[in-house]
Design a protein around this nucleic acid. Structure first.
Length: 318
DNA sequence: GCGTCCAGGTCTACC
DNA sequence: GGTAGACCTGGACGC
């Protein structure tokens, strides 16, 4: 879909805010889609906001202590003033512009693990996700597979069923909508993208989300965290781990990979079987970091190299 | 080459 | 309520 430049605006986030670390995180996790492009500080990505496909071009114009960046918005139709306001507010929230990291930093500076990570990644903010279905798809395709195989699966799903945002001389592929996947037979996804048993979970989740009566990300945000998580757990193929990474109230999402990392950090010993220590690691992390456990997870996950060096450990980088 | 094992979880049946 | 066992598939590994 060809998108035209319609308007631009500046965002002045709450300092400290490191633009590069926030929009293009060190571990390589995508912001809104695996196909986004980060090229010498210019970041091009795409996502749906209120059902409209947007192409985005972001350029840094500030520093960590005096942060500012410019957003150019590409879309098909001409936006109304209300649409523009909604897009500005939605992007500002998703890019973590208003997030206050000071309380987390105060706690982290006294913690023997996090003190290194907050120094290494000073100014990195948490960011929102494109939408619930994109995150649910990612979570389902990460299950029971090595990372490279998960990548093959989601690239195939996006290439075959996603949309292409064509703007500013570039093409960015975005996750398919739930309506699109709900119309596909699980058998087709198994054959075409080798999703295996995950295909029926993906179509099941798409069917529920595509009906339109499931709470939106904004509605889930307003719910108490426990209620929001209960709701997300109703989606087929979404269990405790996946619910922790796709909901708007992230928890401490421990899977086999992160169990390995955090067990090594907490007890200086790599577990024999990662899966066996998931519950223990999760409890230890929540006890240690409490309300900040998600930010702690984020900072550790993106600073494995720095922490390995400073603590003399071998934290697996995938 | 070929067989076996298992991976960044979840669901179900069974106790 | 707690817990084995099944689940698709493909890459790694041993032989």
């Amino acid at each position: 879909m060809k998108l035209e430049r319609r308007f631009g605006f500046s965002i002045r986030p709450r300092a400290p805010y490191n633009y590069a670390l926030t929009v293009h995180k060190p571990a390589g996790w995508p912001l809104f889609t695996p196909f986004e492009i980060y090229d010498e500080g210019v970041f091009r990505t795409a996502l749906h906001v209120s059902g409209t496909l947007l192409g985005l071009k972001l350029k840094n114009r500030g520093t960590t202590e005096n942060p500012a960046f410019f957003v150019e918005v590409f879309m098909t139709g001409v936006p109304t003033p209300d649409q523009k306001k909604n897009i500005r507010e939605t992007l500002s929230a998703k890019l973590g512009a208003n997030q206050d990291v000071e309380a987390f930093y105060r706690m982290a500076r006294k913690d023997s693990i996090l003190k290194h990570a907050v120094r290494d990644l000073y100014g990195m903010h948490d960011t929102g996700t494109a939408n619930i279905f994109a995150e649910a798809t990612l979570a389902i395709l990460l299950q029971m597979a090595p990372l490279n195989r998960s990548e093959q699966m989601w690239e195939c799903v996006i290439e075959n069923y996603g949309e292409v945002a064509e703007f500013d001389g570039r093409k960015v592929l975005v996750w398919p909508t739930p309506e699109r996947i709900a119309a596909v037979a699980p058998g087709e996804l198994q054959r075409k993208c080798k999703l295996g048993y995950r295909a029926k979970h993906l179509v099941g989740t798409a069917t529920i989300l595509g009906k339109g009566d499931f709470p939106t990300l904004e509605e889930l945000t307003k719910m108490p965290p426990a209620e929001s998580k209960r709701k997300v757990l109703e989606l087929p193929g979404i269990g405790d781990y996946s619910a922790d990474i796709i909901g708007p109230h992230p928890g401490f999402p421990i899977d086999a990979w992160s169990a390995d990392v955090f067990a090594t950090l907490f007890w200086r010993k790599k577990p024999v079987r990662s899966r066996d220590v998931i519950d223990k690691v999760k409890k230890a992390g929540i006890t240690r970091w409490g309300e900040h456990c998600w930010m702690a997870f984020l900072y550790v996950a993106h600073d494995l190299e720095g922490l390995s060096r400073k603590l003399g450990l071998n934290l697996r980088l995938h």
